[in-house]
Nucleic acid binder design. Structure first.
Lengths: 352, 352
DNA sequence: CTTTTTTGCACAATCGATGGTGCAATGAAT
DNA sequence: ATTCATTGCACCATCGATTGTGCAAAAAAG
């Protein structure tokens, strides 16, 4: 750091300063010098000069030459929600601990955008890719395949590469059971009183709906189609679904399963428009965990998906060379109302 | 996309196929061909071949040559919170609309990590950098300066480069006033009943504390030091502060200002440990907006910071060449309890 | 004191794209 | 029929690092 020069030092600069050749400097600084039988003393000299001048490798040059970049990508639908932002947080920590550089991008659940974004990442020669919740996993697959890019699907499975997903069926069963048990505490519950809102025609939604229906049928002896309201993944659409229900029935269902925290935001929008009485005695389940959502003024059961485990498992899969495409289930966890879980943030030191 | 070849096509491949030189191909594909007086027909031929073979430029090579990468960085303290994740979302949209590639990284409020992460970004020759909430803005400054990297500070000001920050003083005044007014609705409030929790010795916290104290003094005629409890930015520490207060007083303060949503998570942890009566009549203000936090079972006033405007302003500043280091204030917005605001997610299409 | 082996390093090609320079062919002007 | 300007493109050095190869000098073996 002694150097105040404007331009960054290169191996050529150090080569001149040290009297060695650029290749020697390169070898010393990238660790391959033992293999190249560079003298300890030479290496020490060069290392000394390197940090005296604050040398850092130009990673674009390295990447160009070695066609590896040290970048690991994570493709997200959106950032702005606790499930994905917490996944990003775990991802980042994991990637950095491996000495690589995380690059997180979102594609807004748009298949075309997904493909484009992945193309861009490939243009930067990223080494590996985590695809979380791709709308069109197999479309993205082709792009990766063509570029020879190793990737895993997280959260939503693809058919052409290994996937790590939440046990949506199991989680939905737990959640539905919790909702119904709680509702039953205050008397009998007809099946028409238990709904599901949110989600669309993706694998996760289908599995959750299946779990919901199975448990409902088992516990309440019925499962009318009308109780399933797939609204897509937008707060606005979900709010409209609640409004529609309310317009028909003058109240909200006794209990309902909300497909994600994004859909739960739709419930908030509905609530903002209506007096407190309207939802005095509802029981809600949300397939996502949010620390504030857990403390709403009515019981909210939540499912906490273990994004950290999913990321770890993802790396494991990428590590084992060319495994056949398998799908790993990661068990989620039922979170009772009024529960504050710790998260990745707690790993940070915060000295005052 | 006709090509199923394993390797990506390069300008050299296209050069052979088209019978032109690599430089001509390059010029055609990067748009500089008019300037180079390439015949329209030649250009058309090359463009045809390019997308027939699914050509995409190797951005590392381009970056190496031009020492620009098309990458724009955003350095965040953490992802896992609605303020920053929403900022990331806006940032990403904005950067992409400019045809560049966003790269978002977090440094966990650790000054050393901040510098390292920025070094890494510089090694990838990023073109511009947004530093949001750096613990040590001026340390990062040196790193950027040395590399000749243009950057702006967002959220926390640095002294050596332009900054865009929230009007923390003004926001804190609004928020404090709202808390006190609400508390006064149920009778007189002594100054000892209004507290502030969270934050530490950074610019934002100081300004907020100043706003809080000024309003408190003006409205309640007093402002004891004991009412200020800077707990740092961690849910755990904040929870402990609430526990400590509760141990002393057997209840929570009548009204309190919470410095951020991360600190508000600390309140949730406290609440999880105590019966509902303990916080039956509190009034809370939180300097951050969270859609679920707004619907907690007690009044929560929130401040919504306009991260989108801050990002936009940031780009504007980077656009104007070498302006002197100025600080722009962006006005935040007071959000009354039980309010569901729309966010960047609403901009996404979600067709079912 | 040779011959062989080992040590220590330099050379040069390469990754893919960019942009300055130069030169032939064509057309216009004299 | 020269001269000059314009058009259209090819050539080549360059960005900074990696890596296979080759070759002296030093050390070991004979």
């Amino acid at each position: 750091m002694t150097d105040t020069g404007k331009k960054k030092a290169t191996i050529y600069d150090l080569s001149v300063l040290s009297g060695s050749s650029p290749s020697t400097v390169s070898a010393v600084l990238n660790g391959s010098w033992r293999k190249r039988r560079i003298k300890e003393a030479t290496a020490a000299l060069i290392r000394g000069l390197a940090d005296e001048h604050g040398y850092t490798a130009n990673l674009q040059a390295r990447g160009l030459r070695s066609s590896r970049s040290g970048l690991v990508g994570l493709l997200l639908p959106v950032y702005d929600n606790r499930y994905f932002s917490s996944m990003a947080q775990s991802f980042e920590a994991e990637v950095r601990s491996r000495g690589q550089c995380p690059i997180v991008v979102s594609a807004c659940r748009d298949p075309e955008e997904e493909r484009q974004v992945v193309e861009t990442l490939i243009s930067y020669s990223i080494d590996e890719l985590f695809i979380a919740g791709a709308t069109d996993p197999d479309g993205v697959h082709d792009v990766c395949e063509k570029a020879g890019l190793r990737y895993v699907n997280i959260d939503l499975p693809g058919t052409k590469a290994s996937s790590v997903i939440s046990d949506n069926y199991g989680g939905a069963r737990m959640l539905t059971q919790a909702i119904i048990e709680r509702a039953l505490e205050d008397g009998p519950v007809p099946p028409e009183e238990i709904y599901l809102f949110g989600g669309r025609n993706d694998h996760a939604s289908r599995e959750r709906i299946r779990g919901f229906r199975d448990v409902k049928r088992a516990m309440l002896g019925g499962d009318p189609d009308a109780c399933i309201r797939p609204t897509g993944y937008s707060p606005g659409m979900t709010a409209r679904a609640f409004e529609a229900f309310y317009a028909d029935h003058g109240k909200l269902p006794r209990g309902f399963f909300v497909n994600s925290s994004i859909n739960l935001e739709g419930l908030m929008r509905f609530l903002a428009q209506h007096p407190h009485e309207t939802f005095a005695d509802i029981v809600v389940g949300c397939y996502d965990y949010d620390p504030f959502g857990s403390f709403l003024p009515f019981p909210v059961f939540m499912i906490r998906q273990d994004s950290e485990a999913m990321i770890t498992k993802g790396f494991e899969i990428l590590g084992t060379s060319r495994a056949p495409a398998v799908t790993h289930l990661v068990a989620p966890m039922l979170v009772p109302p009024r529960t504050a879980l710790t998260g990745p943030l707690d790993a940070l030191k915060d000295i005052e």
